[in-house]
Design a protein around this nucleic acid. Structure first.
Lengths: 129, 129
DNA sequence: GGTACTACGAACGAGTTGGTGCGTAGCGTG
DNA sequence: CACGCTACGCACCAACTCGTTCGTAGTACC
């Protein structure tokens, strides 16, 4: 997360915006705030986000140390993403961002409604489980 | 502020980000949160922000109903900007954005330091004042 | 009066995020 | 086994914010 930030900022908001830059990072983080998610779950939860943007932004967030990726197997097997400990400090902020959006939605005629996230395929549990 | 927002958003953060879109709007709002400011004061408080961007973003914010502009006289005379009543709901969010930035600054080697804002020229007070 | 300041606006280009379309190696399940 | 799914990546383009440069009508102050 430290890359290229060692300069002067004239208020805290400038720094925050630079770290959380872009359309999708805060949205991804906000969803992960609720718990670890599969790539496909994130995809379903954020319908307007393309595969390309999702994978790129996830990689950015990983490099920034805000998201960790857990994967069993190689290509084709699911990856799980979760907020890092480092990102814990963001939880309150993400909540506030969400709350404000929910609050102004009626004023601006917007509809905020979570997408259905289908239960994804899971590795068959052990028989003795 | 209602322009083009009457569609579905999949979480509150998406809506918030769309309203506060861009590099400079939240920064401008954060400064105005502390009290009304002259154009020139804003300019001095946010050194990396160019005239062009400042005037454009202020106009956007005005159109969105988040900032009001007060001006005596025409070109050349100072304009004062302040948050609207409508923007009051943003105060908490702006504070949180600032607080988080201040909090992570040491971790990322960033320096957050407010710019000096010089006392601007004021209309000479009435002699009897 | 003269000059620096004030608050913009026009014209143009840069840069980065975001979007579209397509493809792939491997997995997981019926 | 076959096929749909998974999680990406490549190539290319779009779009919009942002940045640079220059200029202006009028103000404010010395």
């Amino acid at each position: 997360m430290a890359a290229g930030l060692n300069r002067r900022f004239y208020c805290g908001v400038e720094l925050t915006l630079e770290i959380l830059q872009g359309k999708w990072k805060p949205v991804i983080l906000a969803h992960l705030k609720e718990g670890p998610m599969r790539y496909g779950e994130l995809r379903a939860a954020i319908p307007r986000l393309s595969d390309k943007m999702l994978s790129e932004r996830l990689r950015d967030l990983e490099e920034q140390g805000l998201v960790s990726r857990f994967k069993i197997g190689r290509r084709g097997s699911p990856a799980t993403y979760r907020l890092t400990r480092r990102a814990d400090s963001l939880r309150s902020l993400l909540g506030t961002l969400n709350d404000w959006g929910l609050r102004v939605a009626p004023e601006v005629g917007a509809i905020v409604e979570y997408a259905d996230v289908p239960a994804l395929r899971r590795r068959r549990p052990p028989v003795a489980g």
